[in-house]
Design a protein around this nucleic acid. Structure first.
Lengths: 250, 250
DNA sequence: CGCCGCCTTGATCCCTATCAACGCTCGTGG
DNA sequence: CCACGAGCGTTGATAGGGATCAAGGCGGCG
């Protein structure tokens, strides 16, 4: 279903959800060349330490930002949904200080840095749009820090699912209170800072509490209000413009 | 000692450590009006939910970014050293999604948003410098996520102290292997995602291991190489330009 | 059909939180 | 000048959340 619109259109929608774009700016994005690639689950998109010459945009599927400790444990620090542009930062911080990987089969678009720079020079407000996008990313990192640093596993996972729900709703990938989510519990565990064994138990508890239904590929939220409450979730940190959320009845 | 240079000069130095500024750009910063204020320890600089019309720069002392859960526990998600500009993001994300507070007596400078915007419009590379600054902040958030999500308390605290050491060295506020650090263990605990009781124990262990000496106002690193190793510390995520660190013999 | 990855469940252990008490330092006031 | 209290750091005892170890179930795929 996401395939039905072009990567450029997807990028425009994404930026519009957090910034008001003028028609010319949208047109400039429309004109960007995007190279589209399909990747399987569990593959690296960009590796830590690289110096990419292009940015990527998630067209379909779920990807993530991650880092490893020297003893090999992995922390996932962001999960991307279609429309996200995970490594705009590489435009200005050449060195990748994190890895980018797929969590499910993905379609990824690549946009050359110099094309983006050219567009930004011509239309300075585009710079601000992209900057703002990176600022929202940072805001999400902050929220994850609070989540992982201060909440126990149960509310922590609830919070994560709330965030995914809202962000997917914003790009039209959640119907009612459910969304496709073909991601292993091991990956979710790495995103939550717990082990996969414990992730399984937390999931079981969320199910037993009547908050969620989960099958291998989909999450159904059974009680959104209560999930928000136990997850201590308050979406202002996502910095969506005015009506992106409220109009979707969350 | 930091008082001997102007806030503007401090800001220029800071930006130069991560970006090459031209003389005109430096001059533009030199011309920015800065209102200087003194604050005591433990005070809010900007509160979550506000919409500030100015950015601030830390001139002296230590401040932090923090958020609270609904049950009142606090996560500190960044510690600022003199020269840092903690809320550039408010230029483009009007709403503060975090609080900014002092961890020690501080001198803070305020720069009006519109002055900054005007300077950026005149000299577009300033925009990039400031953007880059926010990208480095985000990189530090990522590293803290790894630290808090995946490392135990002992290496976690070691890592935090390594980071402070390097960043203070970069602004000339660490001599040899020691630096002034008049911050309570409770604050450090909130930054590490542990309790203050456990912080005290971790500190004791670091001392017993011969890694640190700590008195009420100062940290002395006794074995830098081993501290780095224990803390699994690798400073590339700070994105300092080439020689800022190496030339300081760390 | 059989292997492999993923999820589940149980048992045990350990790191860290919690509860509690005490000492120290410093600022305040009698 | 000393008493006193408040905030901070330290230390001990106990409790609990989550890690670890281990085994079994299940479904997908070669």
């Amino acid at each position: 279903m996401t395939h039905s619109i072009s990567p450029n259109e997807l990028m425009i929608r994404r930026l519009k959800s957090i910034y008001t774009l003028s028609p010319e700016e949208a047109q400039a994005i429309e004109g960007l060349p995007v190279q589209v690639v399909s990747l399987e689950s569990g593959q690296d998109i960009v590796r830590m330490g690289e110096r990419p010459s292009q940015c990527c945009i998630v067209i379909d599927g779920f990807s993530c930002v991650y880092k490893l400790t020297s003893d090999g444990s992995r922390q996932i620090m962001a999960i991307h949904v279609p429309g996200d542009i995970p490594d705009i930062q590489s435009l200005h911080l050449g060195l990748m200080d994190f890895g980018l990987a797929t969590l499910s089969p993905c379609t990824i678009g690549y946009i050359p840095h110099d094309e983006l720079r050219r567009a930004c020079e011509k239309l300075p407000r585009l710079t601000v749009a992209l900057w703002r996008e990176t600022l929202v990313d940072a805001s999400i990192y902050r929220d994850w820090l609070l989540n992982i640093g201060q909440r126990e596993a149960f509310p922590r996972v609830a919070h994560l699912i709330c965030e995914l729900m809202v962000r997917l709703k914003a790009v039209g990938l959640a119907e009612d209170l459910s969304f496709k989510f073909p991601i292993t519990q091991m990956n979710l565990a790495d995103a939550s800072g717990i082990t996969s064994v414990h992730m399984s138990r937390v999931y079981a508890a969320l199910r037993a509490d009547g908050l969620l239904e989960v099958d291998r590929a989909k999450i159904v939220v059974k009680d959104w209000e209560r999930l928000k409450k136990v997850g201590d979730f308050e979406p202002s940190y996502l910095h969506f413009l005015n009506d992106v959320i409220s109009s979707k009845s969350l």
